[in-house]
Design a protein around this nucleic acid. Structure first.
Length: 870
DNA sequence: GCAAGGTC
């Protein structure tokens, strides 16, 4: 490139802080003519100006920023309203990317600046999202100026040398990275919107969800990140519920000497068999001299933590201060905005070699509390310094979280600001410190052939523990023992204990689960957790531990019963690996989109047809509401065709609370086009079949026989009305259709007989149970044992339904008790896994566990004696 | 009114 007239280049960063920092670095040279700042259209995104030379070519640089994504993905207007279409259509519905209202000012700045420039240099974060935002910027800028020469700067830290290097070695943006994000956005939108609309419309009005006064507006959302997060909470909850305490026995030995007390632990741990433990104990008591068989002395190191990533910050703030991850991020954002800490959303847990760590320590020397520690760190004589070891994660965009400005506390800071800044500083100082050193002693003894062991620790040098007050290193001293030494134990006891269930998941546990499974990003994980609370899916106790609410449990149960693992992290993991394939170029964007959406659509259609499972699981916890008598059908809204009256919205098939069908315009109340189907119609479906005798748009009115039957007889002998859809023809006069609406006594919706209304259908009364159990057409079996739930006789029967023919199940004979359980869900000893009883039967106990009254002859004895520890 | 991902 030769010199000559300067080229005007527009530089764009992902956020204002990066635009400022990079401009600052690039304009340090005197030849830059200094750094000038002016306002853009957006009050947050300033424009920096300076001169710069790239390979001998003079440039006039303008440097501005966006604030994250410039565009959003949404459905076309006609699909935006919830009742505008059947949610299944959202798998094909047209989507568009657009710049939302609150970003229009940034868009205008970009357009205005792009028109004045020849080059566009993209300084977005160097990750997939950043690359996608880069292409959003490109789209806006090239709309304003088609001749732009487009470049990408690759940088991983805001360090002078690195920034200059990337400016001198510009590359082209990577379309594949951006494609991967396009795929994710589209899949997330379609899955999220379809399932959310489906389950909200299906369940919200059907049950009394009494946890909010305003349950009409509650949203039962589904998302590929929030649901697996809920899944972790529910799974642990079920694990706890299904835990049965088991008694075990262990032998303990202590020895008091002049130097102190030593506690020896039995090397076998514990035994579940009392007799066995008691025999061994007797042996020990009878021959109770202890002989020291081994004495080991070792130096042990306790290493300081890795440099701080977002997840670690959230986990530690939760553990040390009980701050929620969401609040932590808010406080961290404040500290970052005010310049006290570095960018708080980072996966990186290792410092770049080029980072000047000592300078950062120097800044902390004046602090009244940890200043002296910082001074010791910098003193070569003290030998406290150690180059930090990394945890192996690097997002190539941001350094680990570290202090960027000294503070001994600011006026406007809350307690939490103080705590979090202190955590960041102490963590940083710990990272560059030597590990703590301890001397550990282990003593093994033998009593009557049984081995016991005791250990003690002495801290030789605290090192990083001096500054990292949040961590300690437990351990106690033990007296001195020598090999071959013999002594009489002071106490030798046979003690019993019981196994305990695992604890509920803490916020730190939940973050670890999400991190491991790849759910969410460092910037969004706390949002997913908060969403569980906002949606009433889970609660958090004062100990920061999460339990599912009944709603959360019911939803997970429902999908689990369908056989879907939509609540597990596998779907997201699969998507993530596909995204990776797209970004590497091994799979195409369209290929992944098509396959994934096809699978998810099939899953959605299946879930819809299995919605009974969701109803059943909800019914375990919630009462049915009377807001709608035929709730599930009432909410179904299948699109028939475009409204011929307003030409704007769709005509959809719906069922009203009174059970009658209607085909109405979704533009209501603006458009009042409606066709009421006669009350005798008990089922109506939208089909693609076109009536042979008239134009598309017919709703069966041309069929004389049908019309006569429904209007005159009203007996419903042809009670399925097919509504032709997808046509453009005219709608039959709604007034005539309304006249034909026979609101009188029609066929019962349940048994399809006349003579009674559906509300009092005798089949419904007995059906309440039948729909829940598989025993329809089952044959009575022979054996009878007491019901686990009520104690009445429980009968072994054989299912005769299509899906479970031949499968055996126990079912309670009592009319009041709905207990039933598949025989193959009963394990050894009559143990029933959690959920296998309750998910399909309304067993009031709702818990698994031991079947009380399970006959002796069915129990197989298990050997739980451990004899292999030696 | 719905997702998840950026960011103020």
């Amino acid at each position: 490139m030769a010199g000559g007239r300067p080229i005007r280049a527009l530089n764009v960063a992902e956020k204002p802080s990066v635009a400022k920092a990079v401009s600052g670095i690039l304009s340090k040279n005197p030849s830059s003519g200094g750094l000038r700042v002016r306002d853009g259209r957006s009050r947050y995104n300033k424009i920096f100006e300076f001169n710069y030379t790239i390979q001998n070519q003079q440039f006039q640089m303008s440097f501005t920023s966006v604030t994250g994504h410039l565009m959003e993905l949404e459905f076309e207007e006609r699909y935006r309203k919830w009742h505008s279409c059947d949610p299944v259509q959202l798998y094909q519905a047209a989507v568009k990317k657009y710049v939302p209202e609150d970003k229009l000012d940034i868009k205008r700045t970009l357009e205005e600046e792009a028109r004045k420039c020849q080059w566009l240099i993209l300084w977005l974060d160097c990750d997939r999202e950043g690359e996608n935002i880069a292409f959003e910027v490109v789209e806006v800028c090239t709309q304003a100026n088609r001749n732009l020469n487009i470049w990408r700067a690759r940088f991983s830290a805001l360090i002078d040398r690195e920034i200059h290097y990337s400016m001198q070695h510009l590359v082209r943006p990577n379309q594949l990275f951006a494609d991967a994000v396009d795929v994710r956005q589209e899949i997330d939108l379609r899955i999220g919107a379809s399932f959310t609309r489906f389950q909200t419309m299906l369940l919200r009005d059907a049950f009394n969800l009494d946890f909010t006064s305003d349950d009409k507006n509650i949203i039962l959302s589904y998302g590929p990140c929030q649901f697996p997060t809920l899944g972790f909470v529910v799974e642990r909850f079920w694990e706890i519920q299904s835990h049965e305490p088991e008694e075990f026995w262990t032998i303990n030995c202590t020895h008091n000497s002049e130097e102190g007390i030593a506690t020896f632990n039995w090397m076998r741990g514990h035994l579940f068999d009392y007799t066995c433990a008691a025999i061994i104990y007797e042996m020990c008591v009878q021959e109770s001299t202890a002989t020291v068989t081994r004495v080991r002395q070792q130096e042990k190191l306790k290493y300081p933590p890795h440099p701080l990533s977002t997840i670690e910050l959230e986990k530690r703030a939760s553990r040390y201060f009980r701050m929620s991850s969401e609040h932590t991020m808010k406080v961290a954002e404040d500290l970052y905005q005010a310049g006290f800490i570095s960018y708080p959303r980072t996966e990186t847990d290792c410092f770049s070699e080029r980072t000047d760590l000592r300078m950062m320590v120097q800044e902390q020397q004046g602090h009244p509390v940890w200043g002296s520690y910082a001074q010791r760190l910098l003193d070569p004589e003290a030998g406290l310094w150690r180059n930090p070891s990394g945890g192996g994660h690097d997002d190539k965009a941001h350094p680990p979280i570290h202090p960027t400005k000294f503070s001994a506390g600011e006026n406007g800071w809350s307690q939490d600001h103080h705590k979090l800044y202190e955590l960041v500083v102490r963590h940083f100082l710990a990272c560059v410190s030597q590990p703590a050193v301890g001397a550990e002693t282990t003593v093994d003894i033998d009593i009557a052939g049984e081995l016991f062991s005791a250990s003690g620790r002495m801290i030789m040098a605290k090192n990083y523990l001096d500054v990292y007050r949040f961590e300690s290193w437990g351990g106690s001293m033990i007296p001195t023992y020598n090999f071959g030494q013999q002594f009489a134990p002071t106490t030798l006891t046979l003690d019993s204990g019981v196994t305990r269930p695992p604890p509920l998941l803490s916020e730190a546990d939940l973050l670890s689960c999400m991190d491991k499974a790849g759910i969410g990003t460092d910037a969004t994980m706390h949002d997913h957790i908060k969403k569980l609370l906002d949606r009433f899916y889970a609660t958090k106790d004062s100990n920061t531990r999460f339990s599912p609410t009944e709603l959360g449990e019911a939803l997970v149960m429902g999908y689990d019963d369908m056989g879907y693992e939509l609540w597990k992290p596998y779907l997201r993991a699969m998507m993530e690996s596909d995204m990776k394939a797209v970004s590497m170029g091994t799979k195409s964007k369209t290929e992944v989109l098509e396959t994934c959406l096809q699978q998810m659509k099939a899953c959605f259609v299946d879930a819809k047809s299995n919605k009974g499972k969701l109803f059943e699981s909800m019914a375990v916890f919630f009462e049915r509401s009377n807001r709608s008598s035929i709730n599930e059908q009432n909410t179904v809204a299948e699109v028939v065709r475009r409204c011929s009256l307003c030409q704007e919205s769709d005509m959809v098939l719906r069922r009203k609370p009174d059970g009658n069908f209607m085909v109405g315009c979704t533009g209501f109340p603006h458009c009042k086009n409606v066709v009421w189907l006669p009350g005798s119609v008990s089922e109506a479906v939208v089909t693609t079949n076109i009536c042979s005798s008239c134009a598309p748009g017919c709703i069966g009115g041309c069929d004389d026989i049908l019309r006569q039957l429904v209007e005159i007889c009203g007996t419903g002998s042809r009670n399925i009305s097919s509504v032709h859809g997808r046509g453009t023809g005219h709608t039959p006069s709604s007034s005539s259709a309304q006249r034909s609406n026979s609101r009188g006594q029609g066929a019962c919706l349940y048994c399809r007989q006349t003579g009674h209304s559906s509300d009092v259908c005798p089949s419904r009364v007995s059906r309440g149970r039948n729909v829940r159990s598989p025993e329809a057409d089952a044959q009575e079996g022979e054996s009878s044992i007491p019901c686990s739930s009520c104690g009445a006789p429980c009968v072994l029967r054989t299912a005769n339904t299509a899906s479970n023919r031949g499968r055996k199940f126990y079912s309670c004979r009592s009319q009041e008790c709905n207990f039933f359980v598949w025989e193959d869900n009963i394990n050894e000893g009559g143990r029933v896994a959690r959920g296998n009883i309750s998910r399909t039967a309304s067993n009031p106990s709702r818990s698994g566990g031991l079947w009380q009254g399970w006959p002796e002859w069915k129990t197989s004895k298990r050997c739980r004696i451990c004899v292999c520890n030696r």
